[in-house]
Design a protein around this nucleic acid. Structure first.
Lengths: 206, 206
DNA sequence: AGAATATTCTCAACACTGTTGAATTATTAG
DNA sequence: CTAATAATTCAACAGTGTTGAGAATATTCT
């Protein structure tokens, strides 16, 4: 019933230029960060008028989200590697995967820039949640643990803290710690958040 | 020997206006954040020319640091309350103090804004370290634990993660968690970082 | 064909930002 | 008074995200 009234006028194009804008934005945002990337620079690199960028995306923030969102292929891999293997070693495996992701340049930039931007861009927090919480939740679906979302966000709080202190603020001696050591330190924390009994605060287990 | 050559010219004033600029900056930065606070607004509130602000502080970032630095009276109290009491309950006490600090409006704004700004202002990371790491280190001086700085920064990573996920990004269900619950969850983590044997990754202690 | 309509794109400008340099006024010393 | 130094002001710069008017272009209808 909807297609009875055919509208006249030009059809939406093949988004050739729109795609090139996103590509330019993705590259520049990753290299220069949100602040130091100007809409005019994106337009220049995409060989396009700056106003056209606004016309398509409405704002610089919206463009950032549009350009950063595609990097959500990453969580799938994490979720896959995370869900195979027994839950008792999930903390160690999550720590290993996550730190490994941050030690490799291209993926590191994505997470770091996403976190930096999430602070001042409303809606980018949702993006972060997708990158960091969803893979953990996905891996949870097969194990029968209570409070899955709480556990996932608690683990996320430790991971986000590592990104902040080690990779953004670069606070020593944490920043210069060998990856293996860092993994060994935070793995038990993640393990506790993910699988331990949360309502049992065991002070005497030392 | 230095005062032999008396310099001519006007003496440096009593910093009356300089003080009012800092006061205006402190208020505006706390209320509006770094981005949405303009140097012109600060100048207006201080009844001063914008160029005078630049003349005194050189840049907006430097002014921010100058205006935020005074909030370092806070760590002293934390350090005091942290150092009395036995080390075995330090994790719980640190968690309680820290979360309490973030649940109270005025102090919460300080930490949140400091963290937000530390991301893009070079040198503000040092400020953060003063607020979060030094009190822990100070409380450490009396106990004889190894790797004090590493332990302090590890604890900081969890605390910063909480500030980010709960108070800035507001990711659920962590953001709506009752403070007591949150404290109960992260206290064991802090305790482990602060006093446990870090080289012993105990997988079997469940 | 031509008229109508919708999309793509360009241009010039706006309001606002942090920042700068020169000029002006005020204070102090010789 | 004169000269030097500080406090302050003024006007402007280059840059930002954003906007609105309109031109070009493509598609569909009659």
């Amino acid at each position: 019933m909807d297609k009875i009234i055919k509208k006249a006028g030009r059809r939406p194009g093949q988004n050739k230029t729109k795609t090139s804008i996103v590509a330019a934005a993705e590259a520049l945002f990753a290299k220069e960060g949100f602040d130091h990337t100007t809409i005019r620079a994106i337009a220049t690199q995409a060989e396009v008028d700056p106003a056209l960028v606004m016309h398509y995306f409405g704002s610089k923030q919206a463009l950032f989200i549009a350009a950063t969102a595609p990097s959500q292929q990453m969580p799938h891999k994490i979720a896959q590697e995370l869900s195979r293997g027994n839950p008792e070693t999930m903390g160690l495996r999550l720590a290993t995967l996550f730190v490994g992701m941050l030690e490799a340049k291209p993926t590191s930039h994505i997470v770091v820039n996403a976190l930096k931007a999430a602070i001042r861009i409303p809606g980018a927090a949702a993006l972060l949640k997708t990158v960091l919480v969803r893979p953990i939740l996905k891996a949870f679906r097969e194990s029968a643990l209570d409070h899955a979302e709480l556990r996932a966000t608690l683990a996320q709080s430790q991971l986000v803290g590592i990104v902040m202190t080690r990779y953004i603020l670069k606070i020593e001696p944490l920043a210069s710690l060998p990856p293996e050591e860092l993994i060994a330190y935070i793995a038990p924390t993640l393990q506790r958040y993910l699988t331990d009994d949360l309502n049992n605060n065991k002070k005497e287990v030392l």
